[in-house]
C-alpha cells in the first residue's frame, strides 16, 4: 500500500493544532446536538428551564452515567460488560437483606460497594483468568446475578431502609444540586483524568487497538482488563446505592434492561464499540443528551417507550450519518475533479 508520507527529515510533533482537531471531532457534533435539543425543549415547554425541574430531570441519567464511565473504558479496551444491570439488582438485594437484618447506612454502603466489586471480580476472572469472550461471559453472569436476586426475593421486595440511607438518592448537596448530580460530576472528572491523563488510560487505548502488541510492549493486559471489570462492578454498586436509595425498595427486576441503555450512552458518546477509541467528555455529553430527550418528552407527555424509539434511532443515526456523509462527500469530490 502507498502511504501518506513526506520525505523531509524533520518531523514536526503535530500538523493540526488540538483546537482545529476538536472542531471536527465527535464531541463538537454532540455539543451541537445537545444545544439543539436544549433550545427545542425550552421552546416546546415553559417548564423546561425551571432549575428544580432540570434538577429532577438529572436523575434520568446520573445513575446510568456512573456506570457508563467505567463501561466506556471497558469498551475502549475491546471488551464489554452486559451484566451491569444485574449487578445493580444483586447489590440492591444484598443491601436490602442487610437492612432487614438491622445494619445501618454506613454498613449498607460498604456492603453495596463490596457486592459490586465482587461481581466485577467474577467477570474479570472469567474474562482474563480463563480467557473467555466477555460478551458471552457477561450474558451468563447477567442471568446468574439477577437470577440470584430472584432466588433470594422471588416475587417479594425489600422496602425497609434506614431513614439516613435516603440521602444518596434523594438528598441535595447545595440548592438544586443533588448528591447524585455531584457524584456524576466527580466521577466524570475522575474517569476523564484516568482515561486521558494517566499511564493506565494510555494502556487501555493501546489494548483496545492491538492487545497483542500492547502485551509485547510490556503492558500487563490481563491485569488492566481485570481492573476495568472491577471498576465497572464498583460503579454498578455505586449506581445501585443511589437507585435503591431513590426508590426506597428493592425488587429483583430493578434496573431491568439498563445494560443496553448504558451501552447506548457509551456508543452515542463516540466510543467505538469495537474498541480503541472514545472519550469521557463524549460520554458526558451523551448522558446529557439522553437525559434531556427523556425529560423533554416527559414534559410533552410522550410515553417512555416512544422515547426509547427515539434513543434507538439516535443510536443508529449518529453512527450512520457520518458514514453516509463521508461517502457522499467523496462522491462529490470525485465528480467535481
Amino acid at each position: 500500500m502507498i502511504s501518506v508520507e513526506q520525505t523531509a527529515r524533520y518531523v514536526p510533533d503535530r500538523l493540526k493544532s488540538p483546537a482545529a482537531r476538536w472542531v471536527k471531532s465527535w464531541e463538537s457534533l454532540l455539543i451541537v446536538v445537545a444545544l439543539a435539543i436544549f433550545i427545542t425543549n425550552s421552546f416546546a415547554s415553559p417548564y423546561f428551564l425551571d432549575p428544580w425541574n432540570l434538577s429532577d430531570a438529572s436523575f434520568n441519567f446520573t445513575e446510568k452515567a456512573l456506570i457508563a464511565f467505567a463501561m466506556a473504558l471497558v469498551i475502549i479496551s475491546g471488551e464489554i460488560d452486559l451484566s451491569v444491570a444485574a449487578i445493580i439488582a444483586l447489590t440492591s438485594t444484598a443491601m436490602g437483606y442487610a437492612a432487614q437484618a438491622g445494619f445501618d447506612t454506613p454498613m449498607l454502603v460498604a456492603i453495596g460497594l463490596a457486592t459490586g466489586l465482587g461481581c466485577g471480580a467474577i467477570n474479570g476472572l472469567l474474562v482474563t483468568g480463563l480467557g473467555l469472550p466477555s460478551i458471552v461471559v457477561t450474558i451468563g453472569t447477567m442471568s446468574l446475578f439477577r437470577g440470584t436476586s430472584f432466588i433470594i426475593l422471588g416475587d417479594q421486595a425489600f422496602t425497609s431502609y434506614p431513614a439516613s440511607f435516603a440521602y444518596f438518592g434523594q438528598g441535595y448537596v447545595w440548592w438544586v444540586f443533588s448528591f447524585e448530580l455531584a457524584l456524576f460530576v466527580v466521577a466524570a472528572i475522575v474517569y476523564g483524568l484516568l482515561l486521558h491523563k494517566t499511564n493506565f488510560g494510555r494502556a487501555v487505548y493501546a489494548i483496545g487497538n492491538n492487545a497483542t502488541a500492547a502485551l509485547f510492549s510490556g503492558i500487563r493486559v490481563g491485569r488492566i482488563k481485570f481492573i476495568l471489570f472491577l471498576l465497572t462492578g464498583l460503579m454498578a454498586g455505586m449506581a445501585s446505592i443511589c437507585l435503591t436509595s431513590r426508590l426506597g425498595s428493592t425488587r429483583p427486576s430493578i434496573a431491568l434492561g439498563w445494560e443496553l441503555e448504558v451501552v447506548t450512552m457509551v456508543v452515542l458518546g463516540g466510543v467505538n464499540i469495537l474498541g480503541g477509541s472514545g472519550s469521557i467528555p463524549g460520554v458526558v455529553l451523551a448522558a446529557l443528551i439522553m437525559g434531556m430527550v427523556t425529560f423533554g418528552f416527559g414534559l410533552l407527555n410522550v410515553p417512555g417507550i416512544v422515547m426509547s424509539i427515539f434513543i434507538g434511532l439516535l443510536l443508529i443515526l449518529v453512527i450512520a450519518l457520518p458514514i453516509v456523509y463521508g461517502r457522499l462527500s467523496r462522491r462529490w469530490a470525485r465528480s467535481a475533479a
Binding site: G140, L144, R146, G147, F150, L153, G154, P252
Partner: peptide, 12 residues
C-alpha cells in the same frame, strides 16, 4: 425463580 441463575451458570 432459580431458572435464571441456573441458565446463567450453564452459559458460563
Amino acid at each position: 425463580f432459580a431458572q435464571m441463575a441456573i441458565s446463567g451458570t450453564v452459559i458460563i
